[in-house]
């Protein structure tokens, strides 16, 4: 190992990675420059815009304000890891259906923040959605359609849950 470098092992979107990194390497740079996952964006130098938001061990974090070494042993989900072979994630579908983006620069971070919210609070009120989105800045949409997209995703996910519950009850 090169002098001063540190080995980090982490799981990104279900795949294990090991890399030797400088301690100062930010998680966002590891994701973008070393793993080629450029869906995670960098929109500011001040930890304020949230474009870089990913899930680290299930929690929404700003990957520009986490060192790669701090994520060692962790589990990271980026926007590239949301869709499954069955299709897009409900939050992605919500942004599509409700026109939750214009230029799209903020979108990966907003989507990951919304995924984090819906994990903790599957049925958020409009106010809770707006509060949850305080850490992401969008210069285009005025947020209205972003909020609608999250509401749409929440209702789709709730319906899917109900269908699953009914199906489970029927097989019992």
């Amino acid at each position: 190992m090169e002098a001063g470098k540190v080995r980090v092992s982490l799981e990104v979107n279900g795949k294990a990675y090991t890399a030797e990194v400088e301690p100062r390497l930010l998680l966002v740079h590891l994701l973008r420059d070393q793993l080629g996952l450029t869906g995670t964006h960098i929109g500011c130098d001040t930890s304020q815009c949230g474009a870089c938001t990913v899930l680290l061990d299930g929690q929404a974090v700003k990957s520009c304000t986490v060192l790669a070494v701090q994520a060692d042993g962790g589990r990271v989900t980026t926007v590239e890891g949301l869709a499954s072979p069955e299709g897009l994630h409900p939050v992605q579908i919500g942004f599509w259906e409700k026109h939750g983006l214009q230029c799209g620069f903020c979108t990966p971070g907003v989507i990951m923040t919304a995924v984090g919210l819906l994990q903790d609070n599957p049925r958020p009120t409009e106010e809770e959605i707006r509060t949850a989105l305080e850490g992401v800045l969008c210069r285009c949409t005025g947020y209205q359609n972003i909020v609608r997209a999250v509401q749409y995703a929440a209702s789709q996910m709730a319906e899917a849950d109900e269908r699953r519950e009914v199906a489970a009850a029927e097989t019992e």
Partner: peptide, 9 residues
Amino acid sequence: IGDPQVRNR
């Protein structure tokens, strides 16, 4: 404090 991402870290 800050926003949800900040409060998570």
